[in-house]
Design a protein around this nucleic acid. Structure first.
Lengths: 203, 203, 203, 203
DNA sequence: TATGAATGAGATTTCATTCAT
DNA sequence: TATGAATGAAATCTCATTCAT
């Protein structure tokens, strides 16, 4: 009985945390970290500002988990791609599309690369480490394509950053009510960015 | 005599303004707008905080001119490319390289796309207008390549944003003391981003 | 329970707002608006400066409510006088005495006419409108006396302003610990100012 | 030669001081002391802000002389009235009219009673002393009328303050381009305020 | 769990005044 | 005499965070 009561309350707590993180991620993405106050997060999550501190240590921790969850989703995609079959191009294409839908979607919605600098050092190093892990995985996919003869690039590291940069910047202009859906945007961008890696005749 | 005194003092004033803008642009780029206080700008420019207000109306105006100057430099490059001869690819390549060197260089050093949201509406509309003018010009170059048969893309608008996004994100990771110089970065990125526009066999 | 908690907290909040307004009105009256800082208001209300902003949007709003409440009190008096019986002179006398006790009293204590210019335009128009409504009502009383044959004046508007001006200036010299009480002052001034309206033999 | 050069320069200096005082008085009256900056005074006097300090020690001294000169003008009028012949009523009427034209006129234009509190103590006591001298003189005129049987009032001090208060408040609403000229306003107000002192039948 | 109230630290900005020329 | 440039002090206000309940 006590056990189940604890579990029920833990579940409720987790649900609240989730709710807060979604609300915060959306605000961070739409208005920027600096322009999003705890009061606004609280209002969006239908809580009092003070009550946020029962669920999170502070604004930094909220920001941290926003990015952490987004990176987890991206890491899962790239891990799947690594194990997957099919051409490297097709697998990379999938990773990039997931990246965009993670950024622009309603579920996670925190741009992992843009907000890192807003974190205080102790938390930042953890996000940077995870972000680097993700970046390395993507770069590994690019390099695999080069090894397999599908791709040609002199600088996989730079090109990887370019790809991710192009994707991350979408949060600054994407509007859910626009002509192109998040899926559309992901498809088009992935196509363009992967195409630039292919070997082709024209220099 | 009076004339020369006026001119000399105007020149000094302009020089100070320039100095302040350089210092501010560097700080905005390196630490973010929100985390850069007037105190820090003043310290970087070797002035008292109050003295900044002799040269600029406030922080917003400083930020405005940072972006305005960067955009002027980029607009000049794209205007030159429009009139230029040679393949569209080569001209676009030049525009993108100038974009990177403007962003990362010591001279202008303000990331034109990232900071727009930090401006108050009256100034923001002016920067957004100029930024859009630049974006349209780049998009026009892409479209020209499509018309001439050099390029193939289904969505010039999206691709243009991807290109510029990839370039703008460099300010988040570029370090002047790193292995690759700003010129190197510009060259490699431009090559990759233009390559993705070319017609080629593989899908 | 929730209901009563809400009510109790609303009551506490209103009480604090009232306390702050009293403290501020007294300072504004005694030292002038410009020379009264938020720190001083906070100290007088036994709060931290930052805490004032929990109750009011800013200094302007505090000033606004000071004047607004004083005008409400004056308007109530003049409305009562309009409906009242007895000679116009007696009723006008009552209005003027209330005016003085409102200005000099501990309850409201904001000089309604002197401080208007310190308000920013959006708030100023609202106070000016209310002040004008009050002034028109007093002038109406004067005009009624003229119509009834009690008073004689060539310019009710000017005379009304003179009366109110004479009353408002009391805040500049009245001291609560002086020989004359606020009531005394009101009585004497009202008598003098009404007397000037009466028809009499000497020119 | 040296002598005449000194005199010429002293004359120019005095002329500049006069110009500055006029400009300042007008601004103080129209916008309030707190809202009038040295930069504005300088602009109105066609000088650089720094140059004001050649002619005056600072803002306080400018304010001091504004009030000092206005009081001198008023004192002259009341001194003349004291020595004058005719009814006390007529002489008091003249004093009040001069008071108004001093306040509202282009020549002096500083309201002596409203601005006293903006002065620092050392200067304030001097103005207060002079202002009190003026007030006493006016009160003396009132008392003389009582003694001569022209006037009836129980409290000459209070009534004098009421009269001066009514006059001083004109600066808050008088507009030179309005229907009534400064002379009109002075005439009407003096008439009303003196009338209240007269003995008459109605109570 | 939840919240109304409170606060310290720090932000931008203003302004009378001064200084070097 | 005159001024462009500089500054210290103080103002209002914001905000993440905490405390008492």
């Amino acid at each position: 009985m006590v056990r189940s009561s604890n579990e029920r309350s833990r579940r409720r707590r987790d649900a609240q945390r989730d709710l807060i993180l979604r609300a915060a991620a959306r605000l961070f993405r739409d208005r920027g970290v600096a322009d999003t106050g705890m009061r606004e997060i609280a209002a969006a999550a239908d809580l009092s500002p003070a009550n946020l501190y029962y669920y999170f240590k502070g604004k930094d921790e909220i920001l941290f988990y926003c990015q952490d969850r987004a990176l987890d989703s991206m890491l899962a995609a790239v891990a799947g791609a690594k194990r997957g079959r099919g051409s490297v191009a097709a697998r990379l294409d999938g990773v990039l599309r997931t990246h965009v839908s993670t950024l622009l979607g309603e579920v996670d919605g925190a741009s992992a690369h843009l907000l890192v600098d807003a974190l205080p050092p102790p938390l930042r190093v953890r996000i940077v480490a995870k972000r680097d892990r993700y970046e390395r995985a993507v770069r590994g996919l690019v390099a695999a394509g080069v090894r397999s003869g599908e791709f040609a690039t002199a600088s996989p590291a730079l090109v990887t950053r370019a790809m991710l940069g192009a994707l991350n910047m979408t949060v600054l202009w994407f509007r859910p009510d626009g002509a192109a859906s998040a899926t559309d945007v992901g498809r088009e961008l992935a196509q363009y960015l992967v195409r630039g890696l292919h070997i082709h005749s024209a220099a």
